[in-house]
C-alpha cells in the first residue's frame, strides 16, 4: 500500500522544477558559516525575484580543493586575500564589471591599503578581521594587551594559540617587532624559538574549539579572531577581547565571481547590494566584523563605532599588517611550523 502512496510524491519535485525552474533564477553562494545576516539575504531575494542558495566552507583550502576537484555552479565566493591572489593567478576568477557596481564608491579607501586587489579588478572587500587575544577577566583581572602574555608560566595549560602557521608565527614576529610577512631567515629563526618557548605554556594549538573553551572556562586566554570572539562576548560578558600593542594581523575576505559562474549579472547585483551603506551597517552589526564601507560607518551604533576590536586604534593599526601570500617563500614558514610542532 505504502509503495503506491509514495508515487505521487515523487512527481512533486519534478512539477516544482518544471514550474519555477525556468522563471526563478538561483544565485549559488559559497561562504563561511554565520558570515551574513540571513534577513539581508531574504531581502535580496525579494528585491530581485530570485532564490539564493548558500553553501558553506570551513577553510580557504577546503573551498579551493573543492573547486579544483571540479565543483562548478557557484556564482559568488568569499575567499581571504591570499586565496584571491592564488585563484586570480590561475585564471579561476572573472574580471568584475564596474558598471554593474555603482556602490563601489562607498568603499573606505583608507582600508584599501590592506586589500590585495585595491582596484577591485577581481574582488571586492567584504569584511576585515584581526587576530588578537581574549581572556577571562573574572579569573585574571585586567591584563596588559601584549603578546608577551604567552610567556606567563602561571597560565600554563590554560592558553591556546591558533593552529595556523602564518597567524602564530606572525604573532611571534610582531612580538619581536618584525614584519609578519618577513622572509628574513634570521628573523624567522628568532620567531620560531619564541613560539617554541610559548608552546610550553599553552594547552594546545587550536583554531576552532577556542571559542567554546574560553566560554566554558577551560581556557583562560586564547588567540583568535575578533568577530568570533565578539560573538562569544555577546553571550559571556566575562570574556574580554584586546589587540596586543605590538600590532596584529589583519585579514580581509573578499567577494569574487568564479570564471565558471552562470548567474554573472545576479552575482554583480549581490555584490552591489552588500556594498549598500545601510545593508553593510546592518551586516556588520550582525557578524561583528568590519565592513570597509566608509558611508556605512555613520549608520553603525556608537557602541560598534567606538569598539576598538572592530575599529583598531590608530597606533595599533599603524603596526598591523595583512598576511600576504608569499609564493615560494611560504615554504620557509612551513619548515618553521614543522620544527615548532616537533619541538618538545
Amino acid at each position: 500500500m505504502n509503495r503506491y502512496r509514495i508515487i505521487p510524491r515523487l512527481f512533486l519535485p519534478a512539477l516544482w522544477l518544471a514550474g519555477c525552474g525556468q522563471q526563478t533564477p538561483t544565485l549559488h553562494i559559497f561562504n563561511w558559516a554565520d558570515y551574513i545576516k540571513p534577513a539581508l539575504v531574504e531581502r535580496f531575494e525579494r528585491e530581485h525575484g530570485c532564490r539564493v542558495v548558500i553553501d558553506t566552507f570551513e577553510s580557504n583550502e577546503s573551498m579551493y580543493n573543492k573547486l579544483k576537484a571540479g565543483a562548478t555552479g557557484y556564482d559568488l565566493i568569499f575567499p581571504s586575500s591570499y586565496m584571491v591572489e592564488l585563484m586570480a593567478a590561475q585564471g579561476m576568477l572573472r574580471q568584475l564589471d564596474h558598471s554593474l557596481l555603482p556602490n563601489l564608491v562607498h568603499i573606505d579607501q583608507a582600508m584599501m591599503v590592506y586589500a590585495t586587489d585595491p582596484l577591485c579588478t577581481y574582488s571586492v572587500p567584504y569584511m576585515m578581521s584581526n587576530a588578537g587575544i581574549a581572556y577571562r577577566a573574572d579569573k585574571l583581572g585586567t591584563i596588559e594587551a601584549t603578546w608577551a602574555v604567552f610567556d606567563r608560566a602561571d597560565l600554563k595549560g590554560r592558553m591556546t594559540l591558533l593552529n595556523d602557521y602564518r597567524e602564530t608565527i606572525g604573532a611571534a614576529l610582531k612580538f619581536l617587532g618584525y614584519s609578519l610577512n618577513t622572509t628574513n631567515d634570521a628573523e624567522l629563526a628568532q620567531a620560531r624559538d619564541v613560539v617554541i618557548r610559548w608552546k610550553k605554556n599553552i594547552a594546545k594549538l587550536e583554531s576552532e574549539q577556542y571559542k567554546n573553551g574560553i566560554a566554558s572556562g577551560e581556557f583562560l586566554l586564547v588567540h583568535g579572531y575578533n568577530g568570533d570572539l565578539m560573538q562569544v562576548i555577546s553571550e559571556n560578558t566575562n570574556v574580554v577581547y584586546v589587540t596586543p600593542k605590538e600590532g596584529v594581523s589583519i585579514s580581509c575576505d573578499h567577494m569574487v565571481i568564479p570564471a565558471t559562474a552562470r548567474e554573472v549579472k545576479l552575482a554583480h547585483a549581490f555584490i552591489n547590494f552588500m556594498l549598500d551603506p545601510q545593508v553593510a551597517a546592518e551586516n556588520t552589526a550582525f557578524v561583528h566584523f568590519l565592513c570597509p564601507n566608509k558611508t556605512a560607518y555613520q549608520y553603525l551604533s556608537d557602541e560598534l563605532r567606538n569598539d576598538p576590536a572592530i575599529f583598531l586604534p590608530q597606533d595599533i593599526l599603524a603596526k598591523s599588517e595583512v598576511i600576504k601570500y608569499l609564493g615560494p617563500a611560504d615554504a620557509k614558514y612551513r619548515v618553521m611550523w614543522d620544527a615548532i610542532k616537533a619541538a618538545e
Binding site: 594547552a203 594549538l205 618538545e344
Partner: peptide, 9 residues
C-alpha cells in the same frame, strides 16, 4: 586532534 596537546601529534 581533540584531546591531544601541542606534543601529541
Amino acid at each position: 586532534d581533540v584531546v591531544g596537546g601541542p606534543n601529541s601529534e
